[in-house]
Simulated scan of single mutants.
Amino acid sequence: MVFDARAIEIPLNSHVRYVDTGTIGEVVDARTTNGIDWVKLDKTGLWYESNRVELLEEKDIKKGSWGNKDLDIENLKENTMNFEELELSSDSCNGGG
């Protein structure tokens, strides 16, 4: 058994929010290691200390969508990498003045 920041038990397949960043995900695994409780979230695949997450009620869960399209995290990462490779030049535009 693992508990959230409010000492509420976190069942598998429930939704939680990481309080530091607002990341929301479904709990796909839970474990205790060296006296610390952890939960693994489906969206990030990362482990979070259970006392740093809050169990969400169904009404608090926002579906991962942007307009009518589902968010594709891998696609967003790829687009971010493409943006990082963008080269800016000081002679690309002139200031008005």
Rank of each mutant, 00 (worst) to 15 (best):
N13Q: 01
S90V: 02
A30Q: 14
I10F: 09
D20S: 14
G45V: 09
S65M: 04
V2C: 15
E26C: 09
N34C: 11
I8Q: 12
G67V: 00
N75T: 04
G97E: 06
N68W: 08
L12G: 06
G35R: 14
G97T: 07
E87N: 15
A7Y: 00
K69Q: 10
E49P: 11
L12F: 11
I10M: 00
N13E: 13
L56T: 09
I73R: 14
A30N: 02
H15F: 00
T33A: 11
C93S: 01
N82W: 06
V16M: 05
G97P: 02
E85G: 03
T80A: 13
S50W: 05
G45R: 11
I10S: 00
E58D: 02
L46T: 14
K59W: 10
V2D: 05
C93E: 07
I24P: 02
K69Y: 07
V27E: 03
N34K: 10
L56Q: 00
N75F: 05
K69V: 01
G67E: 12
W66R: 08
E57C: 11
V27L: 07
D20I: 01
W66L: 05
L71C: 02
S90F: 00
G35H: 12
I10H: 06
F83K: 11
E58M: 15
L46V: 12
